[in-house]
Amino acid sequence: MSPQQFRDISYNGLWKQNAGLAQLLGLCPILAISTSMVNAVSLGLATILVMALANLAVSALRNFIPYEIRIPVFVLIIAALVTVVDLSFNAYFHDLYLVLGIFIPLIVTNCIVLARVEAYAAKNDPLSSTFDGVMMGLGLVWVLGLLGAIRELLGAGTLFSGIEMIFPSLSAWNVFGEDYPGFLIAILPPGAFFALGCLIAAFNAINTHLAARTHKRPPAAATTTSQTTPAERAEPAEPAPAG
């Protein structure tokens, strides 16, 4: 994988083709599980693991999968990987598993995973496909984390609520103090739509600003400028011969 390909995949996954803000894929888990930062990031990390392994498996087997049955085979591979992740969460992070509930098994039907498998992994080598899955997953994670942090901060006045389910020695950070009454709508479904809408608006505004800056960038100096010396410029031109 060349450095340019590395940069392109990173930029597409983290920003240009961001699943949550640009492509608007997987909105159901994005809106439903982002009531807190820990819940949102945990589901995002599970999705990264599934996407990376699914892209790797599909890319390695792409020449052996008949074109006519590729979608059922892709779904079968994704379902097997999601089952492994689901059982692992149940075994090692049981409390968090109970909070995330049905949303881990629903990764099977997440448009983000199947879309990258079909659009990229089925056409490219295993290394770049795996990296593409990681970058697309990270793009989803930062959106989920930011959305969860905004909703949790406004709704409950805390950050990292539930972190003790992963690291028992840690606890939530009470940002606004014990007397903060909370802004209930932020952690209800309407708050998810409002917060995501603001993030999408900010994303589009930044892209518009960057495009305007690129458009206003002055062109490079012309390469055909005269290279004559001062003496040559001072020398009078020879008169034309009489006719």
Rank of each mutant, 00 (worst) to 15 (best):
T158F: 01
R213P: 14
L24A: 08
N207S: 10
P219E: 12
N90Q: 13
A115S: 09
T208G: 12
L43F: 02
F167G: 00
N39T: 15
P168R: 14
I102F: 14
A222G: 14
L159S: 05
L153K: 07
V99P: 00
R62F: 00
A80C: 12
V38N: 02
F193N: 05
S34G: 15
L154F: 14
S226G: 07
M135Y: 13
N63G: 12
T228F: 13
E238S: 14
G44M: 02
L199T: 01
L43C: 06
L24C: 08
V41Q: 04
V143I: 03
A220R: 12
S128N: 08
F194E: 03
L98G: 05
P236K: 11
Y11V: 04
K16G: 01
F89Q: 03
V50C: 06
I206T: 10
V38S: 01
T225Q: 13
F160E: 03
F167Y: 15
N12F: 09
D8N: 05
A211R: 09
C198R: 02
I166M: 11
A122L: 02
A211V: 07
L27H: 00
S88E: 02
L43K: 04
V50W: 10
I77V: 15
I69E: 07
L184N: 05
G137W: 01
I48H: 03
P3L: 05
L98E: 01
G177C: 03
E152I: 01
G139I: 03
A212R: 11
G139M: 00
H215C: 07
I166A: 04
A202S: 14
G191N: 00
N63M: 09
I69H: 09
T158A: 07
L43M: 11
P219G: 12
L24D: 10
V175E: 11
S59D: 11
L98F: 13
P181D: 04
L87M: 08
S59F: 07
S36C: 15
A201R: 03
K16Y: 01
F194V: 03
A91P: 07
G182E: 05
A149M: 07
R151Y: 10
W15Y: 11
A79Y: 11
M37R: 07
V175G: 09
K216F: 11
I30T: 06
A212W: 14
T47I: 07
S88H: 02
S226V: 10
S161K: 06
V38C: 09
T109Y: 12
I163R: 15
Q17D: 13
V82N: 01
F64T: 05
M37G: 10
H94L: 01
A80F: 14
F194A: 05
G155H: 06
